[in-house]
């Protein structure tokens, strides 16, 4: 019997030991430390919102709509979204936000304010004036209310659309 085996034998005096279980606990701790370290690294990478894994910029096929957003959110937290859309110079442009997005999030603030906003069972339609190049940039702060996966889309009425897949942690 090796020295290590001898040392790891259960003693009954002065206390009754259960080293088999204790060694399992120690192994669990070792694995646990690696898991915790991995959690910290993944957090830095953005698995739990804000980071390279989470922050995203998507352009629609037609190129008339760009959305910067976070893939991962945490319940109760707020995250910004920047929407850039291009329409006819000097004319109004209407953006629509689909309902799943409004189920999972609520708008904490929106800049600039839309000149018209219409709600329907499908979601929200917001109308904005464009500048002389036909651009409009929208800054929205979303507050996460729901929990889970939300598949929604933002689109320009009569133009391109961007599907969004977002996850809200509890």
């Amino acid at each position: 019997m090796s020295l290590l085996e001898q040392e790891m034998q259960d003693r009954v005096h002065p206390v009754a030991e259960d080293l088999t279980l204790q060694r399992k606990v120690w192994r669990f701790q070792r694995v646990g430390w690696y898991v915790l370290t991995a959690v910290v690294i993944l957090t830095l990478l953005g698995l739990f919102s804000r980071g390279p894994l989470s922050s995203l910029e998507t352009v629609s096929e037609q190129g008339d709509l760009t959305v910067q957003y976070e893939r991962f959110h945490r319940a109760g937290g707020t995250n910004p979204m920047i929407v850039q859309a291009t329409g006819q110079p000097g004319k109004e442009i209407t953006l629509s936000i689909s309902k799943p997005m409004l189920d999972g999030f609520s708008i904490e603030s929106i800049q600039p304010q839309p000149v018209r906003s219409v709600g329907s069972p499908q979601g929200l339609s917001l109308t904005f004036p464009t500048d002389k190049n036909g651009h409009v940039t929208l800054f929205i702060s979303w507050r996460s209310d729901g929990i889970g996966l939300f598949k929604s889309q933002i689109s320009v009425v009569g133009g391109g659309h961007i599907p969004l897949t977002q996850f809200i942690y509890p």
């Binding site: 003693r11 002065p14 206390v15 009754a16 030991e17 259960d18 080293l19 204790q22 606990v25």
Partner: peptide, 13 residues
């Protein structure tokens, strides 16, 4: 109980 609280371990004999 052992799993949650652990047990005593002798470290000097």
């Amino acid at each position: 109980a052992k799993l949650i609280d652990g047990g005593p371990t002798i470290i000097v004999e």
